[in-house]
Computed example of a mutant assay.
Amino acid sequence: MRLRVHDVSVKLGGVPILRDASLAAEAGEVVGLVGPNGSGKSTLLRTVYRSLRPDSGGIRLGGHDVWAWPARTAARQIAAVLQDDTTPATMTVAEVVELGRTPHHGLFDRNGPGDRAVVREAMSRAGVLALAGRRFGSLSGGERQRAQLARALAQEPCLLILDEPTNHLDIKARFELLDLVRDLGTTTLAVMHELDLAARVCDSLVVLHGGRVAAAGPVLEALTPQVLRRVFGVHARAARDPDGIIRITYAARPLAGDRLTPQR
Rank of each mutant, 00 (worst) to 15 (best):
G38T: 11
K41E: 10
A199H: 09
G257F: 11
V206T: 11
G100Y: 05
W67A: 13
G35C: 12
V181A: 02
V96F: 03
R46K: 15
G57F: 13
R247M: 06
R72Q: 15
V231C: 11
G244I: 11
R247W: 00
D170H: 12
P16E: 02
L177D: 05
C202Y: 06
L195N: 02
N111T: 12
L149D: 10
Q148V: 01
P113W: 03
F136Q: 01
L107M: 14
M123A: 03
L197R: 10
A132I: 07
D115A: 04
Q226W: 09
T43A: 04
R182P: 12
L197K: 07
D85Q: 08
V66P: 03
L220H: 13
I59N: 01
L82G: 00
R125D: 03
H193D: 05
M192D: 01
L220T: 12
R229A: 13
V118S: 11
T92F: 05
M123T: 06
G185I: 04
V181T: 01
D85S: 15
P218V: 04
R50V: 08
I171G: 00
A80P: 03
M1Q: 06
L18E: 01
L61C: 07
V227A: 03
G106K: 11
S9V: 10
V201M: 13
I171R: 10
V234H: 04
P165T: 05
V201R: 12
S42H: 10
G63M: 05
G141H: 01
F108G: 03
G210S: 04
D170N: 11
A150N: 03
R247D: 06
R46F: 06
R125A: 13
A236W: 10
I248A: 10
I248T: 03
H209Y: 13
G217I: 06
T102E: 07
T87N: 09
